[in-house]
Structures are given as C-alpha cells and as structure tokens.
C-alpha cells in the first residue's frame, strides 16, 4: 500500500465525521416531524417460517458484470431481498422488486436520484457524479430520459417496497419514498459511543426514540446489518458488494476522482490500493473510503450472529467471517426451481 493511501485510510473515521456528522444531525432534526414507524416495528414481527436466508443487493460494479438479479429471478428464490438504494433501479429494470430498500447517505441531492428525482430537469448544480459513478451506469447516460424511466418504475412498485431510511437522509429522500407509496421505517445511525455522556447517538435517540443501528459506514453494509439484526435472518448472502473498482477502471471513473485530483494532482493515483482476490485471481482497486468500508465490514462480520455468504463473484470482500460462494451455489439449496432440478 502506498504511503498516501495509508495516510488517508488512517484518517477515514475522522474525515467521515467531518464530512457527514453535521449534515446527518441536521437532517435528523428536519425528518423528526415525519417519523411514524421505525425498524423496531419490523423487528417486532417474527421471521417467517422457512425463510432463513435473505439476499442483500449492494450496488457494486459486479451487478452489471454478472447480472445476479437474472439468476435470482430465474431461481424462484423466495427469501427476502434487501437492496441498497443505489441498486434499486437495477433491480426494478430487471424484474426484481426488493422487499426492502435501505438508504442513509446525507447528501442533499444525489441520493434522491436512486429513487427517481422529480427535480432533475431543473437542477443546475453542475454535479457530474452520476456520469462518473459505476453503481448504476445506466443512469449516467441520457440522464433525463433514464431518470423518467426510473421515476415510473419506482412509482409503480413503491407500494410493495418498505423503505428502511436513516434519519441522516435528506428530507427529499423521505418525501420521494412517500410519494412513491413506500412505507418508511426509520433508524438512527449509531455514530458514536453511546456510553459517552455527550454521545450524538444518545442525543438522537432522546430526540426521536428511534433505534440506533450500526451502519458500517455505507449503505450496503447497513443493509447487511439490517438483514441479520432486524429481520434476524441466520443466513445472509450479499451480491454487488465489491467495495472496489474492477481491473482497468480509469481513475477518472472513480467516485472521488475530482477530489483526489484537486488535492493531490499527479499523485492522485497513489491514493488507490490494489488488492488481489484469491478466489477470482483478479486485482481490484480500493480508494481509501472503500478500503475503510472493507475493514469495517470484516470487523462486523466477525461479530455478526449470521453466516455471511459473499456471492458477489468480484471485488475485495474476503476474509474471516465471510464465506465466498458463487451465487448459483447459494441459490441451489435455497430456491424451489433449483431444488427441483
């Protein structure tokens, strides 16, 4: 790992606090009047018999390299599907309506686009994030038309989807989810040590009495935590959990390119860490945030009460606490269609 990458990764927790904590708190206060149901209301319901497993669909590039949703749909899998917000469009376009969609990022304008942004045509903020991102490349071209398509899909299927929404999310996301007919279940981010008297999480809980849940720093990890903690599934498969960029991805197509270039100029590439996956033999590249997410996930997986199967078939999430397994193999013993063959 290059010294720049190492220096940035060591500061990730601090930089994340600087980036997100203040906005998350403000959003929690703004969302306060709209809170009705929480993840506690979902936890109260007992797990359905025979539904021991669930699949979390994160929004990594492997979704678009392997198309796992096609595999899931053709298998007739009946377990819960929990999608990260960035994966919602991909799921719906491919005929899979998730049971839950999880969202948490406090960004004021970007997150709403995962649900279809009613105000996109009038937005003139010059943000090119969606043209560079690889979470859902489909949205990065012909943006207005693709956004209209997504609006229609989410409006059609919204009533069937439960939104698992963090109080840190911008109010526009809650508004959009409600407009689409989703039922919202709220959670607070567990963002600091609740044993400390000045704990922000404790203060949030006092404000809104909403359960505080560990997020792992990103929505894909939060979706996985939700699945084993709230839905209480003993087996959780994840797809699209790459936490990195595929071989050959130009730096310009990574999420933090603009910021890295502005800060480090020609040395921006030194912020990336190559990691060889022993299962695929491919070398993927993690930026400091992804590397940190990976470390967080592995730390959580070691303590989780579930068996975690990484069925992504790409990326860099491997290690103790995570079982690497092709999706087809996971589905083979857990889907009616596959069991009949």
């Amino acid at each position: 790992m290059k010294p720049l990458a190492k220096a940035l990764i060591s500061r990730m927790p601090q930089l994340t606090v600087l980036r997100s904590a203040e906005t998350a708190l403000e959003n929690a206060k703004r969302n306060q009047p709209d809170i009705r149901l929480t993840i506690g209301d979902l936890a109260a319901a007992p797990p359905l018999a025979g539904h021991d497993s669930a699949i979390v669909i994160a929004a990594g590039p492997s979704l678009h390299r392997h198309n796992p949703v096609a595999e899931i749909v053709s298998s007739g899998y009946e377990g819960d599907i929990v999608a990260a917000d960035g994966a919602l469009g991909y799921c719906l376009r491919n005929g899979l309506v998730p049971d839950y969609v999880v969202t948490l990022d406090p960004h004021p304008t970007r997150i709403c686009r995962w649900f279809g942004d009613q105000n996109l045509a009038s937005r003139r903020d010059g943000d090119d994030y969606f043209r560079r991102q690889d979470l859902d490349p489909h949205l990065g071209t012909d943006e207005l038309a693709r956004n209209q398509e997504l609006l229609a899909l989410v409006n059609r299927h919204g009533p069937s989807i439960k939104a698992v929404i963090c109080t840190s999310a911008d109010r526009s996301v809650a508004t959009r989810c409600r407009e689409a007919g989703m039922t919202l279940y709220w959670w607070n981010p567990l963002m600091d040590d609740v044993d400390r008297r000045e704990s922000v999480a404790r203060a949030l809980y006092r404000l809104n009495k909403v359960p505080c849940m560990v997020s792992g720093g990103n929505v894909g990890s939060a979706a996985w935590v939700f699945t084993h903690q709230v839905l209480r599934r003993p087996e959780v498969a994840v797809v699209g959990m790459d936490l990195s960029y595929p071989p050959g991805t130009p730096l310009t197509k990574t999420q933090y390119y603009t910021e890295l270039k502005a800060l480090f100029g020609d040395r921006a590439e030194e912020a990336m860490t190559p990691i060889q996956n022993p299962h695929t033999q491919e070398t993927w590249h993690a930026d400091p945030a992804y590397f940190w997410y990976r470390s967080c996930f592995l730390e959580l997986a070691a303590q989780a009460p579930c068996t975690t199967f990484n069925c992504t078939e790409g990326g860099v999430l491997f290690g103790d606490g995570v079982e690497w397994m092709p999706l087809r193999e996971f589905l083979a013993s857990r889907s009616p269609a596959r069991q009949e063959t």
């Binding site: 940035l8 500061r11 990730m12 927790p13 930089l15 994340t16 606090v17 600087l18 980036r19 997100s20 904590a21 998350a24 993840i39 506690g40 936890a43 948490l104 990022d105 406090p106 963090c166 840190s168 981010p189 567990l190 963002m191 600091d192 040590d193 609740v194 044993d195 999480a201 809980y205 009495k209 359960p211 505080c212 849940m213 560990v214 997020s215 792992g216 720093g217 990103n218 929505v219 939060a222 935590v225 084993h228 903690q229 709230v230 933090y256 910021e259 890295l260 502005a262 800060l263 912020a271 930026d287 400091p288 945030a289 940190w292 997410y293 967080c296 730390e299 959580l300 303590q303 989780a304």
Partner: peptide, 23 residues
C-alpha cells in the same frame, strides 16, 4: 475540509457487539 470530501457516507462505531441500540 478539503480532505473531508474523501470521507465515507456515515460514521461507523461498533462497541460490545451492539449492532442496534434502543436506549
């Protein structure tokens, strides 16, 4: 402030195996 743009989506803390805290 410039470096903070590289931060993750949200803060992460894990203590005493507590994934969900409700008071």
């Amino acid at each position: 402030r410039a470096l903070s743009k590289l931060g993750g989506s949200l803060c992460f803390v894990m203590k005493k195996n507590t994934f969900v805290w409700s008071g």
